[in-house]
């Protein structure tokens, strides 16, 4: 059964099982591979996307739950990769291997959308579900603070 929803502002309809994780719908059916698979169990945050403005683990969100929703992936966060967070990510030279970073940015974008100038503590609490095995945490914090500052 095809499920219709909006992805990055465009209408999409995907024909896959209702229990297909949104992660695979996005990555393999729609070929938007910026969203990553890290654990498939809601433990790492690499697969974070927005559903109606909320950051969700796409590996834990089934296709059936997406009907009629607005999904935003890293590819749709900004037109030219120039979201304040993305600019801050470059300025602070955050990524190492980069694999976790789409998820980190999507999670951080949710925070900044709700809280214009988050405290250090709010940042850490909000970001704690996202693992970075390369250990870029100090720079992620600095980049979020910069994005909040520079808008």
């Amino acid at each position: 059964m095809a499920v219709a929803f909006t992805i990055n502002g465009k209408a999409a309809s995907v024909d896959a099982g209702p229990n297909t994780p949104l992660l695979w719908v996005v990555r393999e059916h729609l070929k938007l591979t910026g969203t990553k698979y890290g654990c498939g169990a809601g433990l790492c945050g690499a697969c974070t996307v927005h559903m109606d403005g909320q950051a969700v683990a796409s590996c834990q969100t089934m296709l059936s739950a997406v009907a009629g929703k607005k999904i935003t992936t890293i590819e749709g966060l900004s037109e030219k990769g120039d979201h304040p967070l993305q600019k801050a990510w470059v300025a602070e030279q955050v990524p190492q291997c980069g694999y976790c970073q789409s998820g980190q940015i999507m999670r951080a974008a949710e925070l900044l959308a709700k809280t214009k100038t988050p405290s250090r503590e709010q940042i850490v609490t909000h970001m704690d579900g996202n693992i970075c095995r390369c250990g870029t945490y100090p720079r992620i914090v600095r980049a979020i603070e910069r994005a909040a500052r520079e808008g």
Binding site: K31, T33, E75, Q86, W89, Q93, G98, I105
Partner: peptide, 21 residues
Amino acid sequence: VQRIDIAEKSSGKMLYASDVQ
């Protein structure tokens, strides 16, 4: 000098083996 791979790694464009189509 800035790393050459940061923009692609901040926009989801960097391709890993698991992204190959």
